[in-house]
Amino acid sequence: MATDLEIVCVPALSDNYVWLIHDPVSNETVVVDPSEADPVIAAVGERGWTISQIWNTHWHPDHTGGNAAIKALGAKVSGPSAEAERIPTLDYGLREGDSVRIGNHVARVIETPGHTAGHIVFHMVDDALLFSGDTLFAMGCGRLFEGNAPQMFGNMQRLAALPDETVVYCAHEYTASNGRYAAVAEPDNAGITARMRDVDAQRALGRPTVPTTIALERATNPFLRASSAQQLAERRAEKDAFRG
């Protein structure tokens, strides 16, 4: 499914990705999870864009650190209602089933607690786009800082049910590390082996390994493929201690 939205990756901090969503029809620009302001402001300035909104998936500073400076330029901030006290710049609180929009493009809010208690993701159904924050990564999932394995397993089940062509924009460059663990978790999965050849080639060139797709994650992500909350818990614990 094609979209006329322009999506731009802005590297930030050590391994974060901030996503710019630009609608050429309305000339609106949304920033997803701005960890810091300066590279974002530079990126939109180079393109002659103006930021109208910030969408936050959760409260962690490496996702909200740029909020205040960007908001000062006139942007409105939307993020999880459940974390409003931890996002002081928040203008609009969002819950399961709420929606936000850029021009005529609508993003539906899905609550995905686990990494944080109030984490949300933004699913642009008609555009087949998912901005997954720290819930779903390429070949990985977020650490369980404030939630538990049954919650994350439920998240994985919901996201795995999205259409194959859904393009997933996650917030960190963790793919190489995740893939090395995935190869240990599922040593007979030829798809992981093949994917890692591409990941290693991309990283050698300094290129991002994301976005990904739901179809690719369903084939190669050991957390999305976990058969139970117990298996996800075991894999998450193994990955937390993994040094491969």
Rank of each mutant, 00 (worst) to 15 (best):
residue 5 L to Q: 06
residue 10 V to Y: 02
residue 15 D to F: 02
residue 15 D to L: 00
residue 18 V to P: 10
residue 22 H to N: 06
residue 22 H to T: 02
residue 24 P to D: 07
residue 36 E to Y: 05
residue 38 D to M: 08
residue 38 D to C: 00
residue 39 P to W: 11
residue 43 A to W: 09
residue 44 V to T: 11
residue 46 E to H: 06
residue 48 G to T: 04
residue 59 W to S: 00
residue 60 H to N: 04
residue 64 T to K: 02
residue 64 T to M: 02
residue 65 G to N: 00
residue 67 N to F: 04
residue 76 K to A: 06
residue 78 S to D: 00
residue 80 P to C: 08
residue 83 E to D: 07
residue 87 I to N: 01
residue 89 T to M: 04
residue 90 L to H: 03
residue 92 Y to W: 13
residue 98 D to A: 06
residue 99 S to V: 02
residue 100 V to D: 03
residue 100 V to Y: 05
residue 104 N to W: 04
residue 108 R to D: 09
residue 116 T to Y: 04
residue 118 G to M: 00
residue 123 H to Y: 15
residue 131 F to I: 04
residue 133 G to C: 01
residue 134 D to R: 04
residue 136 L to G: 07
residue 137 F to V: 12
residue 138 A to V: 12
residue 146 E to V: 08
residue 147 G to F: 14
residue 152 M to V: 12
residue 153 F to L: 10
residue 157 Q to N: 09
residue 159 L to A: 08
residue 177 S to I: 12
residue 191 G to F: 12
residue 195 R to M: 15
residue 198 D to S: 04
residue 199 V to L: 12
residue 202 Q to W: 09
residue 207 R to T: 08
residue 216 L to N: 14
residue 222 P to S: 08
residue 224 L to C: 13
residue 226 A to M: 13
residue 228 S to W: 11
residue 231 Q to H: 13
residue 232 L to T: 11
residue 234 E to T: 13
residue 235 R to N: 12
residue 236 R to P: 03
residue 238 E to S: 15
residue 239 K to D: 12
residue 241 A to Y: 08
residue 243 R to A: 15
